[in-house]
């Protein structure tokens, strides 16, 4: 049996990779994938906690959170398409998206 520390550490590593990606990557689609990575890291930790408690509730939460993430992806990609139609680019630097 893998102990909970390993699962939590993996989830923390994935979450950090996702967060760094959101902050430094310039392509809108890649930024989006990094967000999904963060969400899935959280899902992983929920499953780990659920296994730790021997309680099924945490795994049910993950189903809800997956469907929320799917809805998020639909809206996000739709907006990316709208941006691409306007600009023919999904480079965040080009469109000054994160300008102060």
């Amino acid at each position: 049996m893998i102990s909970i520390e390993w699962l939590i550490s993996l989830s923390a590593v994935l979450f950090t990779i996702g967060l760094i990606g959101v902050l430094i990557r310039r392509n809108a689609v890649v930024v989006f994938m990094c967000i999904e990575l963060m969400l899935n890291a959280v899902n992983l930790s929920l499953v780990a906690f659920s296994a730790y408690h021997g309680d099924i509730a945490g795994q049910i939460l993950v189903f809800f959170s997956l469907s929320v993430a799917a809805a998020e992806a639909v809206v996000g990609l739709a907006i990316i398409i709208a941006i691409f139609r306007n600009n023919l680019s999904v480079d965040i630097g080009d469109i000054n998206l994160l300008r102060f």
Binding site: V31, I35, I83
Partner: peptide
């Protein structure tokens, strides 16, 4: 507007993820 919405989506989703992670810890 789509740029502003995308920016809000990125920042807002990161916020939601932080909240969910916090809830996960409380659940743990």
């Amino acid at each position: 507007a789509p740029y502003a919405a995308f920016r809000y989506l990125i920042i807002g989703t990161v916020g939601g993820t932080f909240y969910l992670l916090g809830v996960g810890f409380l659940y743990a």
